[in-house]
Amino acid sequence: MSPAFLYGGAGILLFALGLWSFLVHEPLLRKLIGFNIMGSGVFHLFIAIAHRGDGLPPDPVPHALVLTGIVVAVSATALALALNSRLEAADANASASAHQTHGRGADEHADDAKRRRWPTR
């Protein structure tokens, strides 16, 4: 019983750590890392419960659920990162056009550089 609780408890601590990071930190990448650690905590709890002591075959059903979960977590991360990069591009364009209306010639180099880096649609 003790090792199972040890591993299950570690899963819950990971979940709490990820949840805290997800709520507290501002940048999206740090939120995503927190989110993924949160998910890993849940997966870890599943694996810990599926483990029925050394020597016994583990429960295959939670393993299959976790396998599915890992793929879904990564696809959600990929979608979030793609959304983020589009948001960044939109921000860069907005600030670039704001600078242009100020008519400050020195910024135009920076604007051009931004436009080269994030092609607009």
């Binding site: 299950g8 408890g9 819950i12 709490a16 419960i49």
Partner: peptide, 17 residues
């Protein structure tokens, strides 16, 4: 979040025992 974690730990302990 820590309080929530303690609650969850307690639940897991009950379930496992």
């Amino acid at each position: 979040v820590s309080l929530f974690a303690v609650l969850l730990l307690w639940i897991v302990y009950i379930t496992l025992s």
